[in-house]
Simulated assay, not measured.
Amino acid sequence: MAVTSTSTATVISSDRVEGTSVYNTSGDKLGSIDDLMIDKLTGQVRYAVLEFGGFLGIGTDRYPIPWNMLKYDTSQDGYVVPLDKAVLDGAPRYTDDQVPDYDDRYSATINKYYGF
């Protein structure tokens, strides 16, 4: 579901973010946001989980991307990341039935991959 509101509110419900398309800076659609991972202590969104690949949701991989990499682009009704499909090919990922624990070690793996 794309976010199309013209509201100036600075907060948004997670159900409006989930399903939003994600594009690279060239305008190619990479996938859509499947989930948000929220830090239990701070309440801040740490990762957007990008759903990419597969067919009709079958065989789809999920790629956690640091939230601060995503920028919302109203002209595309979606988020833009400075990544291309080749970068995602080597990125940390998992299937829907094998969600990892987002512990310090896994978070460090994601952050290191993206240079954070």
Rank of each mutant, 00 (worst) to 15 (best):
Lys85Met: 07
Ile58Gly: 11
Met37Phe: 02
Ser5Glu: 12
Thr8Lys: 15
Thr6His: 15
Thr8Arg: 15
Thr42Gly: 10
Ile12Cys: 11
Leu88Ile: 01
Phe116Trp: 15
Lys40Gln: 09
Gly57Phe: 04
Ala86Met: 11
Ser14Arg: 08
Arg93Glu: 01
Asp73Ala: 05
Pro100Asp: 02
Pro66Glu: 00
Asp61Trp: 03
Asp28Ala: 08
Tyr23Pro: 15
Val49Gln: 03
Trp67Phe: 14
Asp96His: 11
Ile38Phe: 04
Asp96Phe: 12
Lys85Phe: 12
Met37Asp: 02
Leu41Phe: 06
Gly31Pro: 14
Leu56Lys: 14
Lys29Asn: 11
Tyr94Lys: 06
Ala86Phe: 12
Asp97Ala: 09
Val80Pro: 15
Gly59Tyr: 03
Ile110Cys: 03
Tyr47Gln: 03
Leu56Met: 12
Lys71Gly: 13
Arg105Gln: 11
Tyr113Phe: 15
Arg62Leu: 11
Ile110Met: 02
Ala91Thr: 07
Gly59Lys: 01
Asp15Val: 03
Ser13Asp: 15
Ile110Glu: 01
Ser5Val: 08
Asp101Trp: 04
Asp96Arg: 13
Val99Thr: 11
Arg46Ile: 00
Thr74Phe: 08
Ile65Gly: 02
Gly115Cys: 09
Gly53Leu: 01
Trp67Leu: 01
Leu41Met: 06
Gln76Thr: 10
Ser107Gly: 07
Ile58Met: 13
Ala86Trp: 12
Ala48Val: 00
Pro66Ile: 00
Phe116Cys: 09
Tyr23Met: 03
Gly53Ala: 00
Asp15Thr: 06
Ile58Tyr: 14
Pro100His: 01
Leu36Glu: 06
Ala2Thr: 10
Gly43Tyr: 07
Thr42Arg: 02
Ser7Thr: 14
Ser13Glu: 14
Asp15Cys: 06
Phe55Pro: 14
Tyr114Asp: 08
Asp101Glu: 12
Pro82Gly: 00
Thr10Lys: 15
Tyr114Gln: 06
Lys112Val: 06
Arg93Phe: 04
Ala9Gly: 14
Ala9Asn: 14
Gln76Met: 13
Gln98Leu: 03
Leu41Trp: 03
Tyr94Glu: 02
Tyr23Leu: 02
Val87Thr: 11
Thr8Phe: 13
Glu51Thr: 05
Phe52Asp: 04
Thr74Tyr: 10
Thr6Asn: 15
Asp89Phe: 07
Asp89Gln: 10
Pro100Trp: 00
Ile65Cys: 02
Lys85His: 09
Gly90Trp: 01
Gly31Leu: 00
Thr42Val: 08
Val22Leu: 01
Ser32Asn: 11
Asp103Phe: 02
Ser5Leu: 09
Tyr72Gln: 08
Ser32Ala: 02
Gly53Met: 01
Arg93Lys: 12
Val81Ala: 04
Asn111Asp: 15
Lys29Trp: 04
Ser5Trp: 12
Asp96Trp: 09
Gln44Gly: 11
Ser26Gln: 14
Ser75Met: 05
Tyr79His: 13
Arg93Gln: 09
Thr20His: 09
Ala86Asn: 13
Ile12Pro: 11
Ile38Trp: 07
Leu88Asn: 04
Gln76Ser: 13
Arg16Ser: 12
